[in-house]
Write a protein that binds this DNA or RNA. Sequence first.
DNA 1: CGGCGTCATTGACTTAAATCAAGACTTCTT
DNA 2: AAGAAGTCTTGATTTAAGTCAATGACGCCG
Lengths: 228, 228
Amino acid sequence: MDLTEHIAAIPLFEGIPNNHVEELTDIVVDQTFQRGQSIFSEGDEATGFYVVASGKIKIYKNSPEGKEQILHIFGPGEAFGEVPMFAGSRFPANADTLEQTRLFFFPRAGFISLIQREPMLAMNMLAALSRRLRMLAALVDNLSLKEVPGRLATYILHITEMGKGADALELDISKGQLASLLGTIPETLSRILAKMGSQGIISVEGKKIAILDRRQLKDLAESGKLPA
Amino acid sequence: MDLTEHIAAIPLFEGIPNNHVEELTDIVVDQTFQRGQSIFSEGDEATGFYVVASGKIKIYKNSPEGKEQILHIFGPGEAFGEVPMFAGSRFPANADTLEQTRLFFFPRAGFISLIQREPMLAMNMLAALSRRLRMLAALVDNLSLKEVPGRLATYILHITEMGKGADALELDISKGQLASLLGTIPETLSRILAKMGSQGIISVEGKKIAILDRRQLKDLAESGKLPA
DNA sequence: CGGCGTCATTGACTTAAATCAAGACTTCTT
DNA sequence: AAGAAGTCTTGATTTAAGTCAATGACGCCG
């Protein structure tokens, strides 16, 4: 696939006329990163934003003591780092690759100029930011109002509901990263996976999780509590 | 002040030419609510979005057990409820008034039509959503990576830094609401205010809080921990 | 194929904060 | 001004989850 095609296929640019897609192609910078590299850090001055071409990146915050909270994990076709294009000028969080990752970088000036001439692009960007707000609101809800078992149940249901309601899933991130996404630590996650296993709600084998009792899982996700 | 003037003065509509402001005036619905009323609930179908003309509203989530987490409090000039205009169609959280409140409601169709013809409006909306994302990211950071004293310190500093670095502030919400904003409960907040008082960091008298030791407060906000 | 490094699990312990319960203080209302 | 309703504080107790520490499993590279 050539570059223009690849860019035209990005959801954020859906419905954009060809001449404008070509403008994007003219300004894009194509970059590849190894696993575990930093793309940007909280507080860095932003000069543009990114779209994942392939691979996976995490957006996260760190506490001084070293605990990490992942805000979001982005995969192919998803944009990140747009916030400082529209408000403030610095990134509000860190971004690291989780595996070898190819990124499209769009410099600010060219992009802002285009978004003002192309209403469809503005609408797509508004939709993207709105979805992001929904996700963050859900994360706050999980962190503040649910206990870890409830967060895990919510996560499992969310993943499997995307995948056509299947009863099995394979984690595409490490359990340590999952812990960080759920706002906890690996030890706690490990214990809870074990407990939910012994209660017959799920079965866990390495990165494979199978749902044995969807009803209980739903109860957990809603109530936020693991019954004794 | 007449309605058109009032609407033209809303930050979201800054820089919009007069004829377009008049379009907004034509579609706006002016509503007044008593204290404690619900504006919308999570899951409701959205038919438009709101701007606070006067008063104050809270956006919040509820757990089944009745605990509440406030995501945001909006005052005069601020917009809310825009997310379902651009992604999904239902509100992701609840909105209630905190006092008698006058709202401008903008129906979806008319607004979407205008935003596509007025790039300045699109840019302003992108900026508003981006700021919102920043706030929510900060909230996640607080909830997940800081203990309650650290969140409180962050809040106090944030409030006073807006107000020209003054060393005293008067809470404009109840302590119960503040607890909900900080992701805790009134009992815990009360204890922590008392402790910070006895440690000489702040002094508390009803709704008035004075900062006695800004350095310690900053340490707390950064470390997230209250030293024994 | 054997050893090294990352990642995951399990156990004993500590701790921040929630819960339950009672009382005190404010503030509106009539 | 008295009463009622809502709000705040304080105390005793419980609990979820974090910390510290050690061991176990796995995948990778030479």
